[in-house]
Design a protein around this nucleic acid. Structure first.
Lengths: 240, 240
DNA sequence: CAGAAATGTTTTGCATCCAATATAGCCACA
DNA sequence: TGTGGCTATATTGGATGCAAAACATTTCTG
């Protein structure tokens, strides 16, 4: 009951705009979950989170409900909210969903992309490769986050708010899955799929871009080791 | 402030399982919105809904928040919740999203469908055509709802919980859009796309089923008249 | 000593209460 | 008579309090 929840920015991020504190709490928690600063299964006690952010349980509850809708948190009646702990089954469904949606997004992107967008992508890519070369857990986190952001940027350019929301959810869930099942941590070992993808986009080559997207998703998925899960539960039951 | 909100089942549906009253309120409101018993733009006052279902505002808020996540309700800070009133732009995005997702779903369905599923589809189809032949607003509502349910059944058979959730949202939004912009009301005038689709599924003909699905979505979209919206806002500004 | 029952503690679910904000009604004034 | 500002009212945002459920601990019993 001490300093258990390591949400880093605790107490500090006094809502910038002062409006919609639930939203900003959601964002902080979401970042913490996606960054794996909060391990799957961690209990998110309303009171604890509340004191941490210095708000009442009411607003915490709203934030947790939002996260539950995105699938990042699972609430059990009368038991509380827990950082969700996707099964291998769910992990596969996440990527199956992305395989459906992202090729469509990339097509829309090619239809609508502007030179300004392209340069934004390029500078993002530069930051990504920078993270990839650095060492340490922090850099790894930044890399995973940046990688997800690339896909979110694509979704934004595609110009469909609904699909953008779906991608938001899928990218967050993917990060969680990668954090859980990712082998080694080098999620995109060797490949630099994003750069290739961007080239195809710039060339307005839809089929090629779509193929690259599918290949990219395949790469991410191939880096997962979905067996471990059973062992983890076992270990959980025995030790820690 | 009298009997304003016509949610029909008001006060009666005392939660069957007694658990999660917010969920059942959400379901009632959702049905009412999709059925167009609650017109787009209608204000959903927390207090009013609360008395109607005989719960406190707290739980109503939770229900409204859920609906907001699905896009069926729009909440404006310090102003309250309103049945959402999709713009033509949003309407197009709904169908663009379905065009991406549903062909994938139909492919998954063909991979996993069982004879039991097929017969369930058949009996559902029978009910659908029955509604189509009846007259009156109630039958029309039932027809729209049944039509949406067909797509939801497909999503269920596809076996991907995430996509199923997305389809849930998309179907609900579609119903709202059809209610708003649907020409004449005969949403599927003449065609019986669902039957054809089911035939293709039964024949395990993926390309054909996908093509039929796209054509079907096209039919629905073709029945919309997306111009009116501007006129409505104008009329809104003047009268009522 | 093991397992079950009971008791105390913690945490959630929900109703209620208060302050802040928006809406509506009213009056003054040009 | 119409417009602008002011007061009153209604409604939301959010904190608090209380009952019930889950959980942990201790005590009792075979």
């Amino acid at each position: 009951m001490d300093k258990s929840l390591q949400i880093a920015e605790a107490r500090l991020p006094l809502d910038p705009n002062q409006e919609d504190r639930a939203q900003s709490i959601r964002d902080s928690l979401r970042d913490a979950i996606v960054d794996r600063r909060l391990a799957p299964g961690t209990k998110l006690s309303e009171a604890e989170v509340g004191t941490l952010f210095d708000v009442s349980r009411t607003v915490v509850r709203a934030a947790l409900q939002m996260l539950a809708f995105e699938g990042l948190v699972k609430v059990e009646r009368n038991r509380g909210a827990f950082v969700s702990d996707p099964t291998p089954e769910e992990a596969l469904q996440v990527f199956a969903s992305r395989r459906l949606i992202e090729p469509g997004i990339i097509a829309a992107v090619i239809e609508r992309v502007t030179p300004a967008d392209v340069s934004a992508f390029r500078s993002h890519l530069a930051a990504e490769t920078r993270h990839k070369q650095e060492r340490g857990a922090a850099a790894r986190r930044a890399e995973i986050k940046a990688s997800g952001d690339f896909h979110l940027m694509l979704a934004a350019v595609a110009g469909n708010a609904i699909l953008q929301k779906f991608m938001d959810e899928l990218v967050a869930r993917s990060s969680l899955v990668i954090a859980l099942y990712g082998r080694s941590g080098a999620s995109s070992c060797g490949h630099n799929d994003h750069a290739d993808l961007l080239d195809a986009v710039e060339a307005h080559d839809v089929p090629r871009a779509q193929a690259l997207m599918l290949r990219h998703i395949g790469h991410i998925e191939a880096d997962l080791d979905l067996r471990v899960k059973a062992g983890l539960t076992l270990k959980d039951a025995l030790a820690i």
